[in-house]
Amino acid sequence: MHLDHDHHGPAAVSADSHRPDGTRRALRIGLGGPVGSGKTATVAALCRILRDELSLAVVTNDIYTREDAEFLLREAVLPPERITAVETGACPHTAIRDDISANLEAVEDLEDEIGPLDLILVESGGDNLTATFSKGLVDAQIFVIDVAGGDDIPRKGGPGVTTADLLVVNKTDLAPYVGSDLGRMAADAKAQRAELPVVFQSLRTEAGVCEVAGWVRGRLAAWTA
């Protein structure tokens, strides 16, 4: 390709797995899903559980510019220099899929400014069921839905539900109160996704984000192998 690999070469222009200085870049995992499904809460929980074992950073893509980044800052899940907000012009799906330039810039700046990173979580602002991440931006994507958003979402499908590398069904503790049938959701997800994994989680229980964190560790092991 046309990329320079000497230390002073210009920044990479694509999803190349190496940085301009030849070192392996961080694994990038995208988190998308409808508004209010618990993406930011999942990111916060992942940061808390992984921050002592990995060097990580977060890029948020908000509709109103900095809302999610500010939540993460308030919760102090990571030092502020490890959290960057990308402004999306009211269209997160454009910034994570159709025109990824601002996001690529954000992940590259994080790696340049805080040194080698193992993992960068790229969170999309809440969007619709068709919003997916470009392969030029992330190496794997998690789609987060919740039981209170309607237990027919797995059946309805859409690119997020059917193709995400991991489907997370969040807020399982609410199922009895909103009349959602978890068994039906699991069966529908299985029908839509075949062998792709699905995790049912409640961040209010002790297990919390553990299963998703385990999946992330697995992706990271494969990335660095």
């Binding site: 402004e87 999306t88 012009g89 454009t94 910034a95 159709d98 025109d99 990824i100 330039s101």
Partner: peptide, 9 residues
Amino acid sequence: RFPAGGHAH
């Protein structure tokens, strides 16, 4: 639609 970031401005 040329992907050069203009959509956010």
